[in-house]
Design a binder for these strands. Structure first.
Length: 944
RNA sequence: GCCGGGUUGGCGGAAUGGUAGACGCGACGGUCUCAAAAACCGUUGUCCGCAAGGGCGUGCGGGUUCGAGUCCCGCACCCGGCACCA
């Protein structure tokens, strides 16, 4: 890219020299173990000084495509923070692992026949090479991959901990199953139906215990994707009801699958968000995802049926306006309450033309089941059918019809609603379509049409015992709930949108479950001594896939094809017996749900993490704090996936006493993305952005050409799919790693996305070249530094820079830190100052951003040791005020003059000077001065 | 629809309520060179003006203030998340 350097200056800071310097220092850091962080105990034990600081990046998936310049953005940022903290004296833990289970490796394996492990490991090696070239200050002893048997063993161990636990609602925490069993055995606790433990058969006991485990198998509606041949979590299905990967249709099917009882933690997962230092946007996304809403459960008796309909509502105050009820088509009571014949005078619109309610219900159900999520979303027109049944409104005895309709969802609340057309827009729409009464229970404003959902005064809501009229909505809610409770018709309650986490996949390339089934088909955890359960060799890695539309197909895990692995003889304490292994594998999220803990004690063979090491690196700094990683940096795309799962697992481990921290990540920072122009040809196919040419026509309009073909420009996240990736290797080649680092850090604030512009990278290189040239003679390589005293102006600039850079580093404002260092460098260059007293602090401040250049210059300045632990410069307050400051004189808020004044000038003196300034006098133009505001020494504002 | 974030030169961006546009890219002019590139130096919001200086200017409309990019009210547009969630 750059033309060969023909200049005679052989010590010019070119990409070649930068490359040589960078590799040399990387070798030295590796040889000296510069970034190794000592642990309190264990194999990595050592003497730690200073405060601890644990930094983490969201670890990468080792893709075969390698890195582009967008990937390292966050890694550079955390590296700068880590290097800065070391210079402040902290003991910094920073390492990088690999999230290495995943679908791409499996697809590659299916295509090539190569074992996914082989391919994944070579991808990891390539990624390590690319990242090493960036000069990241990681502790290499603490790196791991989730596919390492030693890591997988502990992933399985955590799974068993969760499997062997239940959630004690009274204590509000997870407890071991063994304690629950002990309670049953001692009689301290009986089965929910009152049966004593001793009266239960072994299988009944198993079922009872299994029904409360935090990891459990159960048959329930799940997302089945025949095209991929696996079930998927809710989070992996798009809004259009298709798989995020591959874009295949997804069907809701009742299947027996593993789940994690994350819903037990709903309240703690919401409430503890108050205790962590996370961006509000992510906290909000998690709150929305968990979707806690307070309201009431209310029972509506049904005519001729013993079981009432339970509904959930957030607006119990509107119950007097409940004029009909709706059940989800899949609701369990529908069959029981559907009448034998249409009641007399049933309107024709309610029957859908069917002869009997049963016929109408059955037809509607079939129709609703055939609707895809997309169709439901696109067509929100309200449909439904009358069941022929009537319920009774408990507060006013009104006889109200019961419908089924697909605008009521089976999975939320109780799957049934009381419909209040006066206070709910959806109910209003349905009521209009089916001619149902509309009753307002909150006084709507004059001229209001349709449902009224705003605040107001309650009306029309009075019975013999309950008088809500005139109350506010909140008062009425409380009054209704109290009344319902008194009459046994309902109670205040809370519901959540969050569902339990579907945890099994029909994949080869994932962690096997450490579970076997006995001859009664009960799941049993394998003993710790048998961990890890490793993946068997299989003849074929590919999942059993089907026609994408074949909803009737069934999942078939690849591991089930290896009977000699599936059927295993074990002695679990009662003699050798044959067991059947679980053949599903864990989802990709498993390893990342606990990996923060392993960095703290990566080789511990006895425990997940030694308690002392965990307490040191993750424990709360003060009582009452959550603890957790001090800084976690990654993209916002994991806001409700990884970050929710990891919090859940961490809390279970906390409850069980394995960790002292209540949250995995104390501070979270979302970095923006690097974006870039992408270009599409006439067919809509992306073309290589690097080969597109920009042409400007006479009118100044820009057009883009790929060869002879005109293409259209777009803007998006950098990556392979948009064919606009720029690799770090290209940047190393043309500029060097330090230039790439400085450029990426100077592009803008860390938390916003920014467009990549290769032609702007040279600005960072010019800056580093200026620093180099300040210290080193380009022809001879000699050090040009002297020991002269600094003049007042330089002292001032230097200390203001130190103060500013420090604060920018603390606040992760690297873009402004770079700007300040450039200003200092430009000042020194212009003033011809090469004094050690100025250049040493400059080199130290630059070092976190451009560590190789920093080390090289530091060493040339005569320091034998790495500057990794050299103290970061401290500003001397004495030099922070300048010898003179510019004072602005405003007249009526407009700048009319500037004065160079002493910083300690008095108000009176400054006012006198300001009023004497010729341009100020002219602006006042003889008018009477009404007021003078003086903020010495910076400002005088004159009001006339 | 709901929640969160945003809108500043040609571009990326900077500004504890106090000189809007730091720093960088690009552009323009210059130095060096036979020439070009690189490098270095200078100019660069816009309009009027020879200049001194002045007018206008941070999405739009109001307000508070001696003074608003910054605070308050209303609106438009853009980005992200959720969405028939009772």
């Amino acid at each position: 890219m750059t033309t060969p350097d023909l200049s005679p200056a052989s010590y010019r800071y070119t990409s070649a020299l930068a490359g040589e310097i960078e590799q040399r220092w990387q070798d030295r850091w590796a040889a000296e173990g510069t970034f190794e962080a000592p642990n309190p105990v264990g194999d990595l034990a050592g003497d730690a000084t200073g405060d601890k600081f644990f930094i983490m990046d969201m670890f990468p998936y080792p893709s075969g495509a390698g890195l582009h310049v967008g990937h390292p953005l966050g890694y550079i940022a955390t590296d700068v923070v880590g290097r800065y903290r070391r210079m402040r004296g902290d003991n910094v833990l920073h390492a990088l692992g690999y999230d290495a289970f995943g679908l791409p490796a499996e697809i590659h394996a299916v295509q090539t026949g190569e074992h996914p492990r082989t391919n994944t490991e070579s991808n990891i090696a390539n990624m390590r090479r690319q990242l090493r070239r960036l000069g990241l200050a990681h502790d290499p002893r603490r790196s791991f991959a989730t596919i390492d048997p030693d890591f997988m063993r502990w992933t399985q161990w955590v799974f068993i901990q969760i499997f062997e636990s239940w959630y004690d609602q009274e204590q509000g925490r997870a407890r071991p199953i063994s304690e629950l069993r002990a309670d049953y055995e001692s009689g301290a606790r009986t089965a929910p139906d009152g049966t004593a433990w001793a009266d239960l058969t072994p299988i009944e006991r198993s079922v009872l215990i299994d029904s409360v485990r935090l990891a459990y198998v159960d048959e329930s509606p799940v997302n089945w994707c025949p095209g991929l041949g696996t079930v998927l979590a809710n989070e992996e299905v798009t809004a259009e009801g298709r798989s995020e990967r591959g874009n295949f249709p997804v069907f809701t099917r009742n299947l027996r699958q593993w789940k994690m009882r994350i819903t037990a933690y709903s309240d703690r997962l919401i409430d503890d968000l108050e205790r962590v230092d996370w961006p509000d946007s992510v906290k909000n996304m998690q709150r929305n995802w968990i979707g806690r809403s307070h309201g009431a459960r209310i029972s509506f008796p049904v005519e001729d049926l013993a079981t009432p309909i339970d509904v959930f509502t957030t607006r119990p105050d509107t119950i007097f306006g409940a004029t009909y009820m709706v059940l989800a088509p899949e609701h369990g009571l529908v069959d029981d309450l559907t009448a034998d014949a249409w009641p007399a005078e049933t309107p024709r619109t309610w029957t859908n033309g069917a002869e009997t309610p049963a016929e109408a219900v059955s037809a509607y159900r079939t129709m609703a089941a055939a609707k895809t999520d997309l169709e439901r979303q696109e067509n929100k027109e309200k449909t439904g059918v009358f069941t022929g049944a009537y319920a009774t409104n408990p507060v006013n005895g009104a006889r109200i019809p019961v419908f089924i309709a697909d605008y009521v969802l089976t999975g939320y609340g109780t799957g049934a609603i009381m419909a209040v057309p006066g206070g709910d827009e959806r109910d209003h729409e349905f009521a209009e379509a089916y001619g149902l009464p509309i009753v307002h229970t909150v006084q709507p404003p004059e001229g209001h049409e349709g449902a009224f959902t705003g605040q107001g005064v309650v009306i029309g809501s009075t019975n013999d015992e309950l008088a809500l009229d005139g109350m506010s909505i909140d008062e009425a809610k409380a009054a209704v709930i109290a009344w319902l409770q008194l009459h046994g018709a309902g109670e205040g309650t809370t519901t959540y949108r969050l569902r339990d986490w579907l945890f099994s996949r029909q994949r080869y390339w994932g962690e096997p479950f450490p579970i076997v089934y006995d001859d009664l088909d009960q799941p049993i955890a394998v003993p710790d001594s048998m961990l890890p359960v490793e993946l068997p060799e299989v003849p074929d890695y590919s999942p059993k896939t089907y026609e994408p539309e074949d909803a009737e197909s069934n999942p078939e895990p690849p591991l089930a094809r290896v009977p000699e692995w599936v059927n295993v003889e074990l002695d679990l304490g009662d003699g050798p017996k044959t067991y059947r292994r679980e053949t599903n594998t864990m989802p990709n999220w498993a390893g990342s749900s606990w990996y923060e803990l392993r960095y703290a004690d990566p080789h511990n063979a006895e425990r997940l993490v030694d308690p002392e090491n965990e307490r040191y690196w993750l424990g709360p700094r003060k009582p009452g704090e959550t603890g957790g990683v001090d800084l976690y940096v990654g993209g916002v795309e994991h806001a409700v996936l990884h970050l929710l799962y990891a919090r859940f697992w961490h809390k279970v481990l906390f409850d069980l006493g394995h960790v002292s921290s209540e949250e995995p990540f104390h501070k979270l920072f979302n970095q923006g993305y690097i974006q870039a122009d992408a270009f599409k040809d006439a067919r809509g196919v992306y073309v290589e952005a690097a080969e597109v040419e920009e042409r400007v026509d006479d009118s100044g309009t820009k057009t883009y050409w790929f060869g002879d073909e005109q293409v259209t420009r777009e803007f998006g996240k950098m990556g392979k799919s948009l064919k606009n990736a720029v690799t770090p290797d290209e940047m190393y080649e043309s500029y060097g790693a330090d230039t790439l680092r400085v450029y990426e850090m100077s592009m803008g604030p860390m938390d916003v996305s920014r467009p990549w512009e290769t032609r702007a990278v040279v600005g960072a290189q010019r800056f580093l070249q200026r620093v180099w040239r300040l210290l080193v003679d380009e022809d001879s390589g000699e050090l040009l530094v002297d020991d002269a005293d600094l003049d007042a102006a330089t002292l001032h600039v230097l200390h203001v820079t130190i103060e500013g850079v420090r604060s920018d580093m603390e606040g992760m404002r690297f873009n402004t830190a770079v700007a300040k260092l450039i200003e200092l460098t430009n000042h020194l260059t212009k003033a011809g100052v090469r004094s050690r007293a100025a250049v040493e602090p400059l080199v130290l401040m630059l070092a976190p951003l451009a560590p190789h250049l920093g080390e090289e210059l530091w060493s040339r300045l005569g320091h034998p040791d790495s500057l990794t632990h050299a103290p970061f410069p401290t500003a001397d307050p004495a030099h922070l005020s300048a010898a003179s400051v510019t004072c602005v004189v405003q007249v009526l808020g407009k700048v009319r003059g500037k004065l160079e004044v002493s910083p300690d000038i008095s108000d009176d003196e400054l006012t006198a000077l300001a009023l004497a300034e010729p341009n100020v006098v002219r602006s006042i133009d003889g008018r009477e001065i009404r007021k003078v505001i003086v903020r010495a020494p910076k400002l005088v504002s004159i009001v006339v």
